[in-house]
């Protein structure tokens, strides 16, 4: 009864305490407005970042381009993150390679898939050029089979560029990256797998419930290192694969810096500033992922 009466009285007239606080707010309101006008209102100008704006014309719904310009700054470098997205690939490669019980065959596959890791990007490009060029093996087989009428220029097109870059990277590195996982698999207690087998587990179940959980820590460390170094993707791969048709899309930060410094402008200070900023960000990323790793696993990886 009493509480109901109290609620009623609050509704009827303003609580003196509340009134006081509103009053005090009125005292500071002019200054809040000043802050609003001079500090917050200009943020409205950020809207220009989302439009294709030419100064005399007003901005309208038609000029809205969303995140285009943000995208423009970092897109090519961020696209290399496609390799982060597929970073599980070498792990799966190792897991199933381990399933091959015929030792010589396993050894053979491991040897030949590791080989491309030891040739330079120039050689990878030479191979790409000779196999995928207009009179290379792929085009000539496809033409003979009647699949296409004229050669496809795989290397000169910008379509699926980053997927193709990832494929070349994988071709070069997957076998090598798998070695670490294979060693981790060797370290798994054989009795555990044997016990599961006696209990009637299928191979898929053994892979899912024993092998993959056992090598996840290794995977975790490698992903962390990849995140930390994804800005430092180097420029060699992109340098050799660049041409007039794909240059705009293939220029990662490192390559951009190089091309910019070598262009007629010779703007050394700006290129240096960009690569400095990049270094600082990647060191921060490294420290950040290391801290996250400490938090989650109680163990740093550096």
């Amino acid at each position: 009864m009493r509480s109901a009466a109290k609620t009623g009285s609050v509704n009827a007239r303003l609580d003196p305490k509340k009134k006081r606080s509103y009053q005090e707010f009125l005292y500071i309101l002019p200054f809040i407005l000043l802050v609003g006008i001079f500090s917050y209102f200009p943020l409205y100008g950020w809207i220009y970042a989302f439009h294709d704006y030419q100064p005399p014309k007003p901005i309208t719904a038609e000029t809205f381009v969303g995140l285009k310009w943000f995208y423009y700054i970092v897109s090519n470098t961020v696209r290399t993150a496609v390799s982060l997205f597929f970073s599980w690939f070498p792990m799966i490669f190792a897991v199933f390679l381990n399933e091959i019980k015929c030792r010589p065959y396993q050894k053979f596959v491991q040897t030949v898939t590791t080989l491309p890791n030891f040739i330079s990007w120039v050689l990878v490009f030479s191979i790409a050029f000779n196999v995928f060029g207009s009179n290379g093996a792929v085009n000539s087989v496809m033409m003979d089979a009647g699949l296409i009428d004229k050669p496809i220029s795989f290397l000169k097109s910008k379509d699926h560029l980053w997927f193709k870059m990832w494929l070349w990277l994988t071709w070069k590195n997957a076998g090598w990256a798998a070695i670490m996982y294979l060693a981790a698999i060797t370290g798994i207690d054989e009795q555990m797998i044997e016990a599961a087998r006696v209990d009637g587990a299928t191979r898929m179940q053994i892979i899912r419930h024993i092998i993959i959980p056992s090598i996840l820590p290794t995977y975790f460390v490698i992903v962390m290192l990849n995140i930390a170094s994804f800005l430092n993707n180097g420029m060699e791969q992109y340098y050799v694969f660049q041409n007039d048709f794909n240059r705009k899309y293939i220029e990662v930060l490192d390559l951009y810096v190089y091309n910019y410094a070598r262009s007629s402008i010779k703007n050394y200070p700006l290129s240096t500033a960009i690569s400095m900023l990049k270094s600082i960000v990647s060191v921060a990323l490294l420290a950040g992922t290391n801290a996250v790793s400490k938090l989650i696993r109680g163990e740093s990886f550096i």
């Binding site: 490669f93 390679l97 053979f108 596959v109 030949v112 898939t113 080989l115 491309p116 000779n130 076998g175």
Partner: peptide, 11 residues
């Protein structure tokens, strides 16, 4: 894996 090996060796 035979396909993998082929892709790595054939070029």
């Amino acid at each position: 894996y035979a396909i993998f090996a082929f892709v790595c060796v054939y070029p």
